[in-house]
Amino acid sequence: MADTALDSPATAGHDDHAAGHATSTGLSNNKLAMWMFLGSECLLFGGLISTYMLYRGRHEGSPTPSQLYNIPLTSISSFVLLMSSLTMVLAVSAAQRRDDRNTTTWLTVTALLGATFVGAQVFEFTEFVHEGLGFTTNLFGSSFFTLTGFHGVHVTVGIIMLMALVGIISRSKFPGDKAEVVEMIGLYWHFVDIVWIIIFTLVYLIPS
């Protein structure tokens, strides 16, 4: 790792056999790959959001969106999710200081906040179904549950990654550079949060 100074901390990723050399861009392979993946995810959510925007007015046979949405509840869960980005930053910072204890603590807190969000979403979905909006009820239902469901699955995958990371770090079995992996999962986590800001605004706040 002659040139790791280019990219602190060290660029060695567990899938990066070229870790012995500086990369052409100076950005580590793992991080560049995560950025590319997130770029691709933008189009995935772009497609889902477009579908929802096309169909949100077509709610024949169910209560209207404004009757269904519980804005205070969703605002609180959105706030919880946004705060998890803060705790994620603290986890990355601790990982860069090689402070394993604080890293695992903040990762756990992040995962718990994420789980709270998912819990609120499950609660919200159940409420909607009780009030007469199912996945198959109408176009609004299909596209609402698909869009927010895809986001919820992304958060859930993030929680699984965070918890796996906590488990691996605390047993100090770690192939590769810890701080970088924490940072990569952090990138993913922040991305999922940013997508939620867009979804929350477009789906809940703008009246249809």
Binding site: T51, Y55, R58, E60, F135, T136, T137, N138, L139, G141, S142, S143, T146
Partner: peptide, 12 residues
Amino acid sequence: FGAAFFSVEKGA
């Protein structure tokens, strides 16, 4: 799963 995305009869 019975979603309505392309069901013309449901206004798709």
